[in-house]
């Protein structure tokens, strides 16, 4: 389950905090459109972001923190800004996608 989940359109998060304290819980789950995160923290005990059909853009001083992984199962591009901090527990990969672009 995600803090924000099953969205047909886009998800835009700015200057905010999304926290999922459930074991295996996800920050943003299953979005049909694009996900844009700016100057925000996404903190989850599971994945940070998963199941996005559109692009994912993380910018500003955002922190993407997922205990079991960062951004997974994204059909579109994942774009990470220079000031973005990525935290994962152990050696789990940050991304499970083929289209990562760093700004």
């Amino acid at each position: 389950m995600g803090v924000i989940q099953y969205t047909s359109g886009n998800v835009n998060v700015s200057n905010s905090t999304l926290t999922n304290n459930n074991i295996g819980g996800i920050g943003i789950l299953n979005t049909d459109g694009e996900v844009s995160i700016n100057n925000s923290d996404v903190d989850a005990l599971g994945l940070a972001i998963s199941g996005t059909e559109g692009n994912v853009s993380v910018t500003g001083n955002s922190v993407i923190s997922g205990n079991t992984g960062g951004i997974y199962d994204t059909d579109g591009y994942v774009e990470i800004g220079a000031g973005v901090e990525q935290l994962t527990a152990g050696q789990v990969p940050q991304f499970m996608t083929r289209k990562v672009r760093y700004w």
Binding site: I4, T7, N12, S14, S16, T17, L18, T19, N22
Partner: peptide, 18 residues
């Protein structure tokens, strides 16, 4: 927020579950 037909916009807010 679950099951949204349109867009979701979150600004200057805290969303917490669990």
């Amino acid at each position: 927020i679950t099951g949204t037909g349109g867009n979701v916009t979150v600004t200057d807010s805290d969303l917490t579950v669990g």
